[in-house]
Nucleic acid binder design. Structure first.
Length: 606
RNA sequence: GCGCCCGUAGCUCAACUGGAUAGAGUAUCGGGCUUCGAACCCGAGGGUUGCAGGUUCGAGUCCUGCCGGGCGCGCCA
């Protein structure tokens, strides 16, 4: 799949007729190399051509040219010739091209390509005409992907761990879309089950307190402050409709058993004394409030979903029962100790798993299987899940379930996000949802701002542990690299403001006709960096690594700042001025496109 | 005990997925505004990539074994 990038050329700005880049520079170099190798095979100098892929890389060191290939190194051993000799033979057969200055052999046998001075001139019209689409490609070939992320239980506000998954997922969605995949973003709502029952009871108990009832609030219930406003609203809206004597409610409370059993007792007791209907209404009040809060929070954070998928709805649709029936029919479900087990160990899991409990209730696993089956039944070709790293042990059984259902487990990719450890200076902040001691995503956003938070999250590899120092993020927010990139963007906008103040204007045609005037080394370096953007998008997308974009954008900003400090853009010479303005328009475009993928704003001024 | 993830400059992180002399930010020290925004630029110091082997032309990256950290190993979700 790598190397299959092809830029979209659907620009309808009137530049279509002009031949810009038929393909990215990297591919053009690759093709020249391929021709040289083919020439050697045709002349019999290279016998059986091993099926080694022809790989061309950007060099790290400019002394090694602009592009480099290790082809001779990888092939020489197989055909029994010396790498340097082979490299030399290939190098001399590289067809001459106006884009190439020279080809050299260096080191153990690298073939290094040096580009001609003005080989990047065509890039400027290319970027200007592609605009927001510059960097996008069709490598994904429209393959439909269901990207599921966040999916936090609606039992409390999102905390900073969820924030990381949200930022990562949102960026990945845009990245995959830019690479040509058709992406749907989905949030799976666990709106039923024990955790929701505990929340319901917690809200109701707070409500009873408001009614004046006296009792000890259970240790294991949700004690976070966010529960109280929900109870207050319920109290304000419904008065004493849900009131029941606390003394009666807690009558017979089992003090001798463990906290979990106590909670189960309390849930059952609440349900029976309140009645199914009223219990449901409290549940609904809690769900609506918290899920609404989560939606708002994510929207404010710039994280949007195409679909919110209800677990309760899934069960009501009968799909879970259907799914269990299918598993039974396929013979991968068996009964033991009164429960129904999936033979997941036959498909790579370390043991079999219970799907239906002894008491007849399904485990959490059953709806999850049905949900994942439904992803593919809805026609998605690929499913990508972003899970917290604590769920890694869950991956084999999910894949096993898909395989048992006759689906391709490879169509499911699970990406793990490590937890963020929060610090206040040196002090580690302990977090627990039930105790209510945690820093919410909303608090984080208010303290450090959306842009800094998004960038901070998404410039680390997702599987890397993340130390998030609040004090640092707060007090030194100016030192966050995101401002460095945004500053470059604002500076460019400022140049155009300055241009207008001086009564001058920018002529795009003039810019494109004078690209040959961009002869400064720093201008060439900037163009070379801009030309890499489509390659970065593709590589980052295929590796599911949005952080590559962040590091790349820093390079773009750095090249620009260096250029800006060294050269005047608004010069007297109108042709040169337009050429330089065209160049920084392109820089601005790449910054906008890249920041857009990361979900960070590109401010006109700061 | 078994399994997964991680270990890179004082700190926070990169390293084009096996390439050439391991790079940025921050912190420390020194320099640069009469010029389009100094939230910027230039320079200096800072490393046995946790340790020990192995694979090959070449290893931070792959394989093995230790050391250290995180997370899993329910008829909880």
């Amino acid at each position: 799949m790598a190397g299959g990038a092809r830029l979209l050329h659907r620009g309808s700005q009137g530049y279509n007729a002009r031949p810009f880049f038929e393909m990215p520079m990297k591919q053009r170099v690759e093709n020249l190399l391929r021709q040289a190798i083919k020439a050697m095979v045709d002349s019999g100098e290279l016998t059986a051509l091993p099926d080694t892929p022809i790989q061309v890389d950007r060099t790290r060191d400019s002394r090694h040219g602009d592009f480099s290939s290790n082809y001779a190194l990888t092939v020489a051993a197989n055909i029994g010739s010396r790498p340097r000799d082979l490299a030399q033979s290939i190098a001399t057969r590289v067809p001459s091209s106006p884009m190439l200055d020279r080809v050299e052999v260096a080191g153990p046998g690298f073939i290094n390509f040096f580009l001609a001075r003005n080989s990047y001139q065509a890039l400027i019209p290319e970027i200007i005409s592609a605009g927001a689409r510059y960097g996008s490609g069709d490598a994904g070939q429209g393959v439909s992907v269901l990207l599921e992320f966040v999916s936090a239980n609606p039992t409390g506000p999102l905390h900073i761990g969820h924030g990381r998954g949200a930022a990562y997922g949102a960026a990945l969605a845009r990245l995959l879309a830019a690479a040509g995949f058709q992406v749907t973003r989905e949030y799976y709502v666990n709106d039923r089950g024990r955790q929701m029952d505990i929340l319901t009871v917690s809200i109701w108990l707070r409500y009873l307190e408001l009614c004046g009832q006296e009792f000890t609030f259970p240790e294991q219930a949700y004690r976070g402050d966010y529960v109280r406003p929900i109870a207050e609203k319920l109290h304000a809206d419904s008065g004493r409709e849900f009131e029941i004597s606390a003394a009666g409610l807690f009558d017979g409370f089992p003090r001798q058993v463990g906290p979990d059993a106590q909670l189960d007792w309390l849930i059952a007791r609440s349900r029976s004394s309140l009645g199914g209907d009223r219990f449901e209404r409290v549940w609904k009040a809690g769900l609506d409030d918290i899920l609404g809060d989560i939606r708002d929070d994510l929207r404010e954070f710039g994280v949007e979903f195409d679909n919110w998928y209800s677990e309760k709805g899934l069960i009501a649709s009968g799909r879970v029962d259907d799914c269990i029936r299918k598993l039974k029919e396929s013979g991968h479900l068996y009964e033991k100790d009164g429960a129904l087990w999936l033979q997941s160990s036959r498909f790579g899991d370390e043991k079999d798993r219970v799907v239906v409990r002894e008491n007849g209730q399904t485990t959490y696993f059953a709806p999850d299987i049905a949900y994942h089956l439904d992803k593919f039944d809805r026609g998605f070709q690929r499913a990508i899940n972003i899970w917290g790293a604590d769920h890694h042990g869950y991956i084999p059984r999910m894949k096993a379930a898909l395989e048992a259902l006759g689906r391709d487990p490879e169509a499911l990719t699970v990406l793990l996000v490590q937890f963020a450890t929060l610090y206040r200076g040196r002090q580690k902040v302990q977090m627990s949802t039930r105790s209510g001691e945690f820093v919410t995503l909303r608090e984080l956003r208010e303290e450090v701002g959306n842009d800094a938070a998004r960038f901070f999250y998404v410039t680390r590899k997702s599987e890397q542990h993340l130390d998030f120092d609040l004090e640092l993020a707060k007090s030194r927010s100016n030192e966050n690299p995101v401002y460095y990139i945004q500053y470059a963007h604002a500076r460019i906008c400022s140049v155009f403001a300055q241009l207008r103040e001086r009564g001058l204007d920018y002529d795009p045609d003039g810019a494109m006709q004078n690209t040959h005037r961009l002869e400064e080394p720093r201008e060439q370096a900037l163009l070379a960096t801009l030309s890499r953007y489509p390659e970065v998008i593709l590589a980052a997308a295929l590796a599911y690594e949005p952080h590559q974009i962040g590091f790349y954008l820093r390079e773009v900003a750095n090249d620009f700042h260096v250029y800006y400090n060294a050269h005047q853009i608004l010069v007297e010479d109108g042709a040169l001025r337009n050429a330089r303005l065209g160049l920084i328009v392109c820089v601005r475009q790449v910054l906008q496109n890249g920041l857009g993928i990361l979900g960070v704003t590109a401010p006109v001024e700061m």
